[in-house]
Design a protein around this nucleic acid. Structure first.
Lengths: 410, 410
DNA sequence: TTATTTTTATGTCAACTTGATTTAAAAAAA
DNA sequence: TTTTTTTAAATCAAGTTGACATAAAAATAA
């Protein structure tokens, strides 16, 4: 539980040894208990392919650390033989703070290790930069110390979700959907030092995808793309059960993908960017809302309920573009499914999705066994903040290749 | 060196132990020597973060197995202190057969473990199915046994590259760029059993990307997309130094990605597929060549040299689409660079690339440090076959997460 | 310039540590 | 009686540690 971000050693050049194997195995057991628990030690042994005795030892150590607890006789009838003693993951062994900062608001959620929210707060902010955010979080932490002393004591880290794209230094911002001054890749480390806790920074779509993977319908898919409606549009990519970030943490930034040559003008300098057609900002543009706030979304919702022709017009314009985007993502990524979610309400998303049919045929068309190629996720900004918290938990509990390798500062 | 393909255990559920750690460390040392060798044992120790003594033991074992050799005094002047004894990777410790099968021809190349070609053959075939191919390869192996007895003895595996997409059963083929009956995911295992050697099957773009990564300019990039001009168009995705395959081995099949709504009709049923604008098939369509053969490409080359207006017209039509595709891939994948290659000649590729400028701005625009966002790879179909051979070597020598985990049949 | 000493680095040996496995036995239920 | 889980002790395998001999370059003195 180090407060610094570590360089990632490549699996191709790093060896491993017993210690790393051990901490990997610990994480594996913990992860299995968290996601599939409670289980008997024999069960865990079967799942991990590790010997019963090894699991015995590992679980004993985890119990020593108060990360698991035992409970006899809770589960029934598993055949003959000595009944197993169930091992439970202790969700209250630690807590994480998830933050979702966007153009208008800052949402903070404190969760336990399985993602249950035990506290939350929403503040109004306007396009905050790292310094401002650090200040707000410090205040928040101070308040938490009073409100939730025991839990704050056990805080293991902070996850921070921001709207992408993260631009590279010296590049002009790309319009109203972008946040300033978060470009420097050292920001997470800088925040870590100020706040005294490990900080993970991720774009909102990725955080939402993680949330969806852990707490939502994404759970059942190994690979999916999460199309996220913030003010702009982004995608979180979960490939082979892992978040794919890209080199500059900008993977999945499909908002500025050109879907129509010589299409609508975009502040980014291109023409025909997807975001100009499919995004909250595009709705505001269609409605003529010039300076949107956190409340504008309710206006949109109301107009949709009233079947306002301008909203219908927007859906008619957006659907072909979204259909195209779905086809493009399927073609490139070959995932199980595409999940759609974000700040748009469920009903609007539903309207949008249903007007997508028939989808373009794709290489993945017939792979997603159970039917739908595009599904709606558990929407709402809370999922994003919870996902951010989960990212923090993830980075410290979940098994990662990283853990297995040497050369990352022990 | 098992002749079967293994299920991949998830890192989240599989533990590890000493044996797996050992074979991982062996692979790591071998891989480092192959790509960066020769090196002293102390050098290897530093790179892997393993102790000198451990490297000592591992290298001794590798030497025992004739996988490495020593040579004193070859390299000079490395500062003071006891000079190291160089350890060399023995490229002739094993050989691999790489095959590239496409619509018109079958190319076979035998390489050593670092990818040097020691034999090759090109045959004419027409849209071969798995059975036909198996027969051809068996004949080829028989011939090799006579021509290269020692090397054939040490054959460690076969890599087979095919044009994608791999369709799912029951789906109609998608036109002249597609090969029949390769859809079943059990084909590699079936081939393994018939040929008595481990077989890896991959789409041509992926194989070419691997070749490019190992032997070409792709070497210097952690992440890149390789845009491959076969008869159709595909992309091989090297993300974080690993080939990304997608669920149905169809990742990167951008040929049927819709770039223009209501664009040109495509046999796949969609309209406006990229492949209808940017591909060899698109050139043939423009030129009115109805039944192209292996030689048709030379006709195209000749026309290009003569600045035939029909080719110029094709480039003018293709460039905006390719520009768009580059932007899309950059947006989604956030890689270092996009490499272009395949059956198109260097000069045509050069013409095409130069007419791409100015590219659309992208999230990656300013990350690829050394300038060009789109570069030309070492083109030519041989690279694809070599890449296929390398894939086979890779699967048995290179460090993979897989190796570290239990639960894959020891 | 030459001879000598110091510094630095490699390779090797042997003892040690660590963590998973094997073996065995007790306990509990069908 | 059979099956299965839990626990304990002994064993094994692989990486680590620290000491040491050795060799070359760099620094110093003659």
């Amino acid at each position: 539980m180090k407060p610094k971000t570590q360089p990632i050693p490549s699996i191709r050049t790093s060896g491993t040894n017993l210690k790393h194997a051990k901490s990997h195995n610990h994480r594996v057991v913990l992860d299995i208990l968290r996601t599939q628990g409670p289980l008997s030690r024999a069960d865990i042994s079967r799942i991990t392919s590790l010997s019963r005795q090894t699991i015995q030892n590992i679980v004993a150590e985890l119990h020593e650390m108060s990360l698991v607890k035992f409970d006899k006789n809770k589960r029934t009838g598993r055949g003959r033989g000595h009944p197993g003693i169930d091992v439970y993951f202790r969700a209250d062994a630690g807590y994480a703070l998830g933050l979702y900062v966007d153009q208008f608001s800052l949402i903070g959620i404190m969760t336990d290790l399985v993602g249950h929210s035990i506290w939350n707060e929403t503040l109004n902010v306007a396009y905050p930069d790292p310094e401002t955010t650090a200040g707000i979080v410090q205040t928040m932490l101070g308040k938490l110390k009073k409100d939730k002393p025991k839990e704050t004591e056990r805080l293991i880290g902070i996850g921070l979700a921001l709207p992408g794209p993260f631009n590279i230094e010296g590049v002009p911002s790309v319009g109203p959907t972008n946040l300033p001054r978060w470009t420097d890749p050292r920001v997470p480390e800088w925040l870590s030092n100020i706040l005294g806790l490990p900080v993970v920074v991720e774009n909102d779509a990725s955080a939402a995808a993680v949330g969806e993977h852990l707490f939502g319908i994404g759970h059942q898919f190994d690979s999916f793309a999460y199309l996220y409606f913030g003010l702009g549009l982004g995608a979180g990519l979960h490939l082979n059960s892992n978040l794919y970030r890209g080199l500059g943490r900008n993977a999945g930034e499909i908002g500025h993908m050109v879907v129509e040559i010589d299409g609508r003008e975009c502040p980014c300098g291109n023409r025909g960017c997807l975001e100009r057609y499919v995004s909250l900002q595009a709705i505001y543009d269609t409605l003529g809302i010039e300076n949107p706030t956190n409340q504008s979304i309710q206006v949109v919702e109301k107009l949709f309920r009233e079947k306002d022709p301008r909203i219908i017009k927007w859906i008619d314009e957006a659907a072909p573009r979204l259909r195209q985007a779905v086809n493009i993502m399927e073609s490139i990524l070959d995932t199980n499914v595409i999940i759609v979610g974000g700040r748009l309400s469920h009903s609007i998303l539903k309207g949008l999705i249903s007007s997508l049919e028939p989808l373009h045929s794709s290489v993945t068309s017939h792979d997603s066994l159970l039917g739908n190629r595009v599904i709606i996720g558990s929407s709402g900004p809370d999922t994003t903040a919870r996902g951010a918290a989960a990212l923090s938990v993830f980075s410290q509990i979940s098994p990662q290749v990283n853990t297995l390798l040497k050369g990352n500062g022990e």
